[in-house]
Amino acid sequence: MIKPIDSLLRRDDLWLASQWQQPQQGIPTGMGALDSQLSQQGWPKQGIIEVLQPEAGQGETLVLKALSQTSPEQWQLMISPPYIPYAPALAQQGVDLSRLVWLKDLDSKERLWAAEQSLASGSFARVWLWLDSLSVSQSRRLQLASERGRSLAVVFLPDSQAGEHHPISLRVQLHSSSSGTTVQLLKQRGGWPQATQRLPLQPSGWPLTQIDTTINDNLISGPWTHSG
């Protein structure tokens, strides 16, 4: 007979304090100060990363490095980004555009379904998902799907969701002010919350000087173009 405590220890959505001691190497963020605060010395290779941002389109530069760190045979999926992905900027960062899929014009249920199926399939190394809100049960489903498929999802949410408590791998929040952008680690599996730190997210993330200056006026936060 399985004891109640044994059944809890077998759950995929719980982590043990002893896991903090397990050496794991994550995906380098490209920012040494941030890597030093992450339990895996970088982004986790699987699971869910939540990026809470004050305005859509600001947090993508933070996770830019993870875009290019995939195997040649694996796909990436962008689900309903706020702006049109700008292919030249993505290619300059090493993203294989032939393995990048973009889905648009989906409602929230369709976005969540597409993300869950893609994560669990094992064919998509990265799933990029933009949402207005996310419930605890929805976040748990995404986390478990990513663990089954050994894939990574980055979920962008408004900072109004900061009060929610989701069972995910990592949660960060961006704060913008006149003095710059700061990043706070709200939660990380295998680690503890860290102090807020100021990081130079722009303009170092996107080498705009290498992009045709005639279209720079339409460039928003690096990877996006804007029709208006």
Rank of each mutant, 00 (worst) to 15 (best):
L142A: 04
L134D: 04
G149K: 03
S178H: 14
L174A: 04
L134R: 01
H165K: 15
V155C: 09
L129Q: 03
F124R: 04
V172S: 08
V136K: 14
Q173K: 15
L142E: 01
S169Y: 02
W130G: 00
S151E: 08
H166V: 11
V155W: 01
P158Y: 08
F124T: 04
S121G: 01
L170M: 15
D159Y: 00
L174R: 06
E164G: 15
H175Y: 09
V127D: 06
L174N: 04
L152P: 07
H165A: 14
S151D: 08
S176H: 11
S179Q: 15
L131I: 07
H175E: 13
L134C: 09
H165W: 01
W128S: 04
S133K: 14
D132F: 00
G163R: 06
R140H: 10
A153Y: 02
H165S: 14
V155H: 05
S179H: 14
L134P: 01
R126G: 02
S179L: 12
W130L: 09
P158S: 11
D132I: 01
G149W: 01
S121C: 05
R171A: 04
L131Q: 09
E147W: 03
S135L: 06
W130K: 04
W128R: 06
F156Y: 14
L170I: 00
H165R: 15
Q173M: 13
G122S: 11
R150Q: 15
R148D: 12
E164M: 08
V155P: 01
Q173R: 14
R126N: 13
S151Q: 06
S177G: 12
L152Y: 10
G163A: 12
A125P: 02
H166S: 11
S176E: 14
L144N: 06
S177W: 10
G149S: 08
S177A: 13
P167M: 05
F156S: 08
E147Q: 15
W128C: 07
S169H: 03
W128G: 07
S160Y: 02
E147P: 00
V154Q: 05
V155L: 04
V136H: 13
R150A: 14
Q161D: 12
F156T: 03
